[in-house]
Design a protein around this nucleic acid. Structure first.
Length: 679
DNA sequence: GACAGTCTAAACAGAG
DNA sequence: TCTCTGTTTAGACTGT
């Protein structure tokens, strides 16, 4: 970690503030630069002794390189072995000699690349050499006075700035080459990254990655290698971090918590390579790119595709003072967030400790879960306290309900405490979770791989209700789960199956079909009742002739009408009129009573018949067997289970259309004994 | 212990 | 054929 220079230029306004945090690599780096620039005679800071020292270091670096090369040559002569890459037409000495004969200066990236390609140096030797080179270049960077960001520069200053930039880029290139070489060595089995190799900058990267990621990285490296050679300096401004870190602490790699990349609880190493890796894996997912817009702070430039975005990124957000300043701002933001997170973590820990102390339930006394430190809490917790978590895959771990709490009433804070396992937010009484319930813990669940203490049904309902149209396709429900909960970014097969099962099993979820596909809506009242579709009851479509009876017997079955169809408008109007006639509130999430279902059914059928007449001319394929709803609506229908005695008679029908009346309310006093609870 | 609710897993079918 | 979607069933687990 580089020492804070302590002096910050004020030329950049708010963008340049006091970098108090020790983790602010970029700030420190820039601070160093600008700290130097703050002086009237920046170069004076580096005295003759410093220059001599720098020169001495250069000499030492070259000396190291020469020694390494000599060792390599001697080994080759002794062993007679030749690297497969070193063929006969390119003598092994060619490049090393050229390197060795260089004048005392920093090895250029091209030369370094040649060294790397020739593989004349071991990784450890390379490491030494590169560190020396980086130290040398850092010295030169320090010596060169950087221009204040927003002050007019004279040509001399610009030249100096250009030189400085070039040095930084050189440094970066060398780093990249080094990493690539190390990776290729690893790929060829020539290098084994071991945990106890702190000298290798790549080591944290390799440690933080699983083998599959490394494999992917190999692919990326092999493809990106040539690209980087041709493009030369194509690193994005994201490289700033690495550049500065490398400059300040060559042996350290910038470790930055990336919540999006650390769902498995591991730190992600923020390096240019890692960055590009994620781009390879997800060609259109870039932290700075989304929805066709550049997400660089304050940019929002529209980029049609990812390629154009990359061009834009390299052209508009290259390494310059503006980007540096913007990065500083962003780091300030991150710093503030980290501070806030630290405070919240502390608070959470205190809460959990407090509640754990008060808990006297022997059965529900798992160790206080350290939500802070265990991002992979789900797994670790289940391992730590198997007794309390027998149902490991499905058991909520971190946000647990205290055992002493009343049913289904879970405060936001209590969700993070300990307690029984299966007690979930909406257990038994199906108290709907509110958006605030999730929202207040949204960030937590988004980042921590903790199973939310809500049932699938509750979450599905929430997902649907959060959507603008109050309807979602299955895939959108999936996406909501993965978007809102880090927990559901894993074991997709399991929870997706659970979602499908819940959608099918719960009465409250209504499938709607239209010409665009199918989507799901939720009947909130039915949800609160929490009833399931009975097992073993075949779901049958409603025959046309039974529609009246059906509605009469199961007024709750008419839930939604597909409003997207033209004929739904009059239908809805009729329904609403009928409901208004009977003082039935319109469908929102409220329940409603319906004392005159017969009238309503008549109104519906009349509307449907009208629609039939209207649409029959166009819909010649309407099968006679289909119900009016089906015939008229290409729409949906989710059948409900029937009692055996009902199988021949009125069949349950769940029709849907958005924002249409819900006749379900009367069930509470009317249809419960009739046929509602046959389950 | 019975029961209800929840969840997972599996099998199956239909559609694209 | 494969994948996705939807349905159904069985069994395990937990709380009441």
């Amino acid at each position: 970690m580089m020492q804070e220079s302590g002096t910050e230029t004020k030329s950049n306004g708010s963008a340049i503030q006091n970098g108090s945090g020790g983790s602010n690599h970029l700030l420190e780096c820039g601070g160093l630069r600008e700290g130097r620039s703050n002086g009237e005679t920046p170069a004076v800071d580096i005295g003759a002794a410093d220059l001599a020292h720098a020169q001495q270091q250069q000499q030492q670096a070259l000396q190291v390189a020469r020694q390494l090369l000599l060792q390599q040559q001697q080994q080759q002569q002794v062993s007679g072995l030749k690297s497969p890459k070193r063929n006969d037409k390119q003598p092994a000495l060619q490049v090393p000699v050229s390197v060795a004969m260089m004048t005392p200066q920093v090895i250029t990236p091209q030369q370094m690349q040649q060294i790397l390609q020739q593989q004349v140096l071991s990784p450890q030797q390379l490491q030494v050499l590169l560190q020396q080179q980086q130290a040398l270049m850092l010295q030169q960077v320090i010596v060169l006075p950087p221009p204040p960001a927003c002050l007019p520069q004279n040509p001399g200053q610009q030249q100096v700035a250009t030189q400085q930039l070039a040095f930084q880029q050189q440094l970066l290139q060398m780093q990249q080459l080094q990493q690539q070489h190390l990776l290729s060595l690893q790929r060829q089995g020539l290098l084994t990254i071991q945990p106890g190799q702190p000298a290798l900058p790549l080591q944290p990267l390799a440690q933080g990655m699983i083998p599959t990621e490394l494999q992917q990285l190999w692919k990326e490296v092999t493809s990106a290698h040539t690209a980087e050679e041709t493009t030369g300096n194509n690193h994005s401004s994201l490289d700033l971090t690495t550049t500065c870190v490398s400059s300040s602490a060559p042996s350290k790699t910038s470790l930055i918590m990336n919540p999006h990349a650390s769902t498995n609880g591991q730190l992600s190493v923020h390096t240019p390579k890692r960055e590009s890796l994620s781009h390879e894996e997800h060609p259109h997912s870039h932290p700075l790119y989304g929805h066709g817009v550049c997400k660089w702070p304050g940019c929002e430039a529209v980029c049609e595709d990812f390629q154009s975005f990359l061009k834009h990124l390299n052209s508009e957000h290259a390494l310059d003072d503006r980007s540096t300043a913007q990065c500083r701002v962003q780091m300030q933001v991150v710093q503030q967030l980290e501070l806030q997170l630290a405070k919240d973590k502390e608070r959470l820990q205190a809460m959990m400790t407090h509640l754990h102390v008060k808990s006297t339930e022997p059965k529900a006394a798992p160790q206080p879960l350290n939500l802070v430190s265990s991002v992979t809490l789900s797994k670790s917790a289940s391992e730590a306290s198997p007794q309390s978590l027998p149902h490991t895959p499905t058991t909520p771990t971190a946000p647990l309900t205290p055992v002493t709490q009343g049913p289904s009433v879970i405060t936001t804070t209590s969700m993070h405490t300990v307690g029984p396992i299966r007690r979930r937010y909406s257990d038994k009484y199906n108290v709907p979770i509110s958006s605030a319930d999730i929202a207040q813990n949204q960030e937590f669940y988004k980042n921590a791989e903790v199973r939310p203490p809500f049932t699938y049904a509750s979450l599905i309902r929430q997902a649907i209700l959060e959507s603008p149209e109050k309807q979602l396709t299955l895939n959108e429900i999936y996406n909501w789960f993965t978007r809102m909960f880090a927990y559901f970014r894993r074991n997709a097969a399991t929870w997706k199956g659970a979602i499908r099962t819940n959608l099918s099993l719960h009465k409250c979820f209504i499938r709607v079909e239209d010409e665009f596909g199918s989507f799901w809506t939720v009947d909130d009242e039915e949800f609160k009742r929490g009833r399931h579709i009975q097992r073993g009851r075949p779901r049958k479509y409603c025959p046309d002739e039974n529609f009246d009876e059906l509605v009469a017997h199961n007024p709750s079955l008419i839930k939604n009408m597909q409003s997207s169809h033209a004929y739904c408008t009059p239908l809805n109007a009729a329904l609403q009129a009928s409901m208004a006639e009977n003082s039935i509130p319109l469908y929102t999430t409220a329940s409603m009573g319906n004392p005159t279902l017969g009238n309503l059914a008549s109104a519906i059928r009349e509307e449907l018949n009208g629609a039939m007449e209207h649409t029959n001319s166009n819909e010649s394929d309407s099968s006679p067997g289909r119900s009016p709803m089906q015939a008229v609506h290409p729409v949906h229908v989710k059948e409900e289970p029937l009692d055996p005695e009902e199988a021949e008679g009125p069949l349950s029908l769940v029709t849907t259309a958005n924002h249409s009346p819900d006749f379900d309310h009367d069930r509470d006093y009317e249809d419960e004994p009739v046929n509602e609870d046959m389950e």
